[in-house]
């Protein structure tokens, strides 16, 4: 469903992604790990269509469509969802109003009737249960004054409402307490279907105990330098990244 080939991207002339290739098939969960600054969020942003990043080489196909040609909103409407590492605050706009606008624009794109207030509210209720989010939080302005964990939970709630085909979770686990982590992971697992793909960016193998990945990739200096099974995450937890760095420099010499 997602096919990334030799993707290069730079920001303000500085190359950040230096040739990434990745295939994701329906139903698969891919974890991406890697040291700070290695380009994980950059990859997520490029996939979501952030315009600051310039794609200098490579291609990305999503469900057979050239993703790089679509506007950010059309990517979202095609089913790409990014749970942000740093969710943005929008003062004065309630989550409900925001999500209803989003849902109805997505529906319009897909040629579906807009949801009326009643139908939308029942959809909200159903998904609220799923991610155990407090109604009070949703009547407040979007992310304004939310705690770090609340913001992350809200991202997963939005994901639940929008039901994407490709979900990219950028460090959704950082800042969550143990209970919230379980709730979020549980939400993600429940939303997983045979058709959906998931990319989980994380620093901690702990999350992968709950969201079990089919593959683990290590991103280093803008490249995927190692891929493996879930065990790779355990190995990283144990040994850190140095051995990978050495391996990389060993092979390039």
């Amino acid at each position: 469903m997602l096919s990334i080939k030799n993707l290069h991207a730079s920001i303000e002339g500085t190359p950040i992604l230096k040739g990434i290739s990745l295939e994701i098939k329906p139903g698969e969960v891919h974890a991406i790990m890697g040291p700070n600054g290695s380009g994980k969020s950059t990859l997520a942003s490029v996939l979501a269509g952030r315009e600051e990043y310039e794609v200098t080489e490579g291609e990305v196909y999503f469900k057979g469509k050239n993703l790089l040609e679509l506007s950010p909103e059309d990517r979202a409407r095609e089913g790409v969802f990014l749970a942000f590492q740093y969710p943005v605050e929008i003062p004065g706009v309630s989550s409900t109003n925001f999500l209803r606008t989003a849902v109805n624009q997505v529906r319009e794109y897909r040629g579906q009737e807009p949801l009326d207030a009643v139908k939308f509210l029942s959809l909200m209720k159903e998904k609220m249960k799923l991610v155990e989010i407090d109604q009070k939080l949703l009547s407040r302005a979007l992310n304004e004054g939310f705690s770090g964990g609340e913001k992350k939970k809200n991202e997963i709630f939005q994901m639940a409402v929008l039901e994407p085909t490709l979900a990219i979770l950028d460090e959704t686990d950082s800042g969550l307490d143990i209970d919230a982590l379980k709730v979020v992971a549980n939400g993600v697992n429940q939303l997983k279907t045979k058709e959906n793909g998931t990319i989980v960016v994380t620093h901690y193998q702990r999350l992968l105990d709950y969201i079990v990945p089919d593959y683990v990739h290590v991103l280093f200096d803008g490249r995927i330098v190692k891929s493996g099974s879930k065990d790779l995450a355990l190995e990283l937890e144990d040994k850190g990244y140095d051995w990978i760095k050495e391996e990389v420099s060993g092979t390039t010499v």
């Binding site: 979501a48 269509g49 952030r50 315009e51 506007s71 950010p72 909103e73 990517r75 979202a76 409407r77 969802f81 990014l82 942000f84 969710p87 943005v88 929008i90 925001f98 999500l99 606008t101 989003a102 849902v103 624009q105 997505v106 794109y109 939005q158 929008l162």
Partner: peptide, 11 residues
Amino acid sequence: QIFYCNQRGIN
């Protein structure tokens, strides 16, 4: 803020 909205499907 605009990108965040875009990412949820809002033009």
